[in-house]
């Protein structure tokens, strides 16, 4: 129990004194995971929308793959991305391994199936007649689609939160493709693992608490935006 209390005290100290290493680590965590989430949304929402609205060959397979991908172990994604980015690998010439860019790629790969599957589920909930009605009212296809996404805004924001939650909390891929380099690719999760293996448990718990605070701040911002326009019932 002492360790937990020490962890709380250490977290407060790190945050209040503006410890430089902690800020670097926290800022990088936010940058990497937000960028990866946005990338996953950019790729995943069109695919998820298509899977929900358009009948095309392989549609169910895409959905099944995306649903399976929601349980994709980060460490497996990390391994694939590492092998691709190895000096001897197909993308080795880019020199991306052990950089934040590599972490963004791996985390986006983890989050994209989540976005596809949840977007499709969110849009399929909406009355299938909605698009037809919009078009009957004279809306172009594009306008009708935007209206549909607007109609589904609450679940879509939840999709964003799920994606961010999945990547900000993972450690396997970040460790493998980032290498946990101090000041370069160390994020809160890999810092917590290192502190644990050094026997610095209070520090590890402090990093965990900073991570929770960060996730809370991001989700609070999105939730506020979400609930502002939620219909009150």
């Amino acid at each position: 129990m002492d360790v937990l209390l020490d962890g709380f005290a250490e977290a407060l100290r790190l945050l209040l004194t503006g410890d430089e290493d902690t800020w670097t680590i926290t800022a990088l965590t936010l940058q990497v995971s937000l960028t990866a989430s946005l990338l996953a949304l950019l790729i995943g929402i069109p695919f998820g929308t298509a899977a929900a609205l358009v009948r095309f060959p392989g549609r169910r397979v895409l959905l099944a793959v995306a649903n399976t991908g929601m349980g994709l172990p980060p460490v497996v994604v990390g391994l694939f991305v590492t092998v691709l980015l190895w000096r001897s690998g197909p993308l080795g010439g880019l020199g991306l391994l052990y950089t934040p860019a590599a972490m963004v790629i791996a985390q986006a790969a983890i989050a994209t199936p989540i976005v596809i599957a949840l977007t499709a589920a969110a849009l399929q909930q909406i009355d299938p007649e909605f698009l037809v009605q919009m078009q009957a009212l004279g809306a172009t296809r594009a306008r009708a689609l935007l209206a549909l996404l607007d109609e589904a805004r609450l679940p879509l924001l939840a999709v964003g939160m799920a994606a961010f939650g999945a990547v900000v909390s993972e450690v396997g891929a970040a460790q493998m493709v980032g290498g946990n380099l101090a000041g370069e690719t160390r994020v809160l999760t890999t810092a917590a693992v290192l502190a644990t293996s050094r026997g610095q448990f209070a520090l590890a718990i402090a990093f965990g608490l900073v991570l929770l605070t960060l996730a809370f701040a991001v989700n609070l911002s999105i939730t506020l935006a979400q609930q502002q326009r939620a219909p009150v019932r």
Binding site: T26, A27, L28, L34, S221, I222, L224, Q228, R229
Partner: peptide, 20 residues
């Protein structure tokens, strides 16, 4: 909503930029 979300995210990124 999309622009609102974009504004929130832009704000967050700005925060990151200032804090780092």
């Amino acid at each position: 909503v999309p622009s609102r979300v974009a504004a929130v995210l832009a704000g967050l990124l700005l925060l990151v930029g200032c804090g780092a």
